[in-house]
Simulated assay, not measured.
Amino acid sequence: MVTSVGVTTNEEGLIRLLAQIVLFDGFDPLDAIAPYEVLAAGGAITDGTLEAELVSAEGPRQVPSGMSLLSLAATARLEPQRADLIVVPGAAGSFPTGEDDVRDDSIPGILARTLDTPLPGLLKQALDRPGLTVATVCGGSLVLAMAGLITGRPATTHHLGLDGLAATGVVAIDARVVDDGDLVTASSVTSGLDLGLYLLERELGPRVAHAAERLFAHERRGIVWRDTGLAPTVNG
């Protein structure tokens, strides 16, 4: 059955969450694998409370990463009406040499090509659905930003991409993880570990997150930025 916010439960009323990690041509492997493995571990240590799967906007297929590093099998199609968490990675490619560098193998070029796929439309459906959380790692937030889906909202990305993120109308925050309710963004590639652990804490509680943290021997870094509390008068 489904709760009021769309979360699936079993016959005993126990929560069952589905996390879909999106793959697209040119994705960064660590951006995808780090949160996938953490979320999958969260499911394993809670008797299957959370299921994680690799998906693509086109459905099951082999998806090549950027820089010809590897390919991963998407086992299902991205389905905003079925998922509870969706994680969008960034791209692996060459660094831009200027503002207009959109070479095919550059990170901006790879991210821009996602706009010509079904992915932006599916991500819009996801953000429009109450109870579903969209999360990103590194350049994944730029996929949403370039599609015009998060204008005016706080988000983060790799520090080299913060200016580009701000240029799209997003409120760019230089933080490890930024939580804006149904949008949770993480900065650079290794922050996918922090994002996965934070999502476990947010969705399943601190005891589960702590157990996963011990399993991976990784302590989350930094403070999760939220638009709450007093505003500092001096920024460090």
Rank of each mutant, 00 (worst) to 15 (best):
G169P: 07
T133I: 12
E201A: 14
L195P: 13
D179T: 07
V143G: 06
G181N: 04
V224W: 13
T168E: 15
R153Y: 12
R220A: 09
R214G: 10
L149K: 03
A209V: 09
G222Y: 00
I150H: 11
G169N: 14
I150C: 01
R176A: 12
G140A: 03
L144Y: 01
A147N: 05
M146Q: 08
V143R: 08
A155P: 10
A155Q: 07
G139F: 02
D174I: 01
S188L: 01
A209T: 12
A217G: 11
G192Y: 02
A135M: 06
V170C: 06
G148P: 10
V143P: 02
G196C: 06
R176E: 09
A211T: 15
G205D: 00
G152I: 06
V137H: 00
H218R: 13
V137F: 05
R202I: 03
A145H: 01
G161R: 04
G222K: 08
T185A: 08
S191H: 03
G205A: 13
S191Q: 09
P130R: 06
E201S: 05
R129T: 14
V177M: 08
H158M: 00
A209C: 08
L142Y: 04
L119W: 07
G148Q: 11
L162H: 04
T185V: 05
L200P: 07
G139Y: 06
G161C: 12
P206T: 10
L199T: 08
L193Y: 14
V224Y: 13
G181I: 12
V189T: 13
L195R: 15
V178K: 10
V137K: 05
G161D: 14
L193P: 13
G161I: 06
A145M: 01
H159W: 14
A126I: 00
A155W: 11
L123Q: 00
T185G: 11
G222M: 00
S141Q: 01
G181E: 11
T151F: 00
L123R: 04
R221S: 12
V134C: 02
A186C: 03
G169W: 02
R207S: 14
V208N: 14
V177H: 11
L183N: 08
L132Y: 01
D227R: 15
G205P: 05
G139T: 01
D128S: 09
L122V: 05
V134K: 07
C138Y: 09
L197N: 07
A167M: 06
L197I: 11
G205L: 08
T151V: 06
E213S: 14
K124A: 15
R153V: 04
L142F: 00
V189R: 02
L127R: 09
G229P: 10
L204D: 15
V177A: 04
R226T: 13
R129V: 03
W225F: 12
A212T: 07
G181F: 05
D227L: 10
D194N: 13
A147L: 02
L132Q: 07
C138N: 05
A186H: 02
L162F: 00
S191G: 03
S191L: 01
L144K: 03
H158V: 09
L122G: 02
A217E: 15
A126E: 03
T157M: 11
G229W: 08
D182L: 07
Q125I: 09
H158N: 05
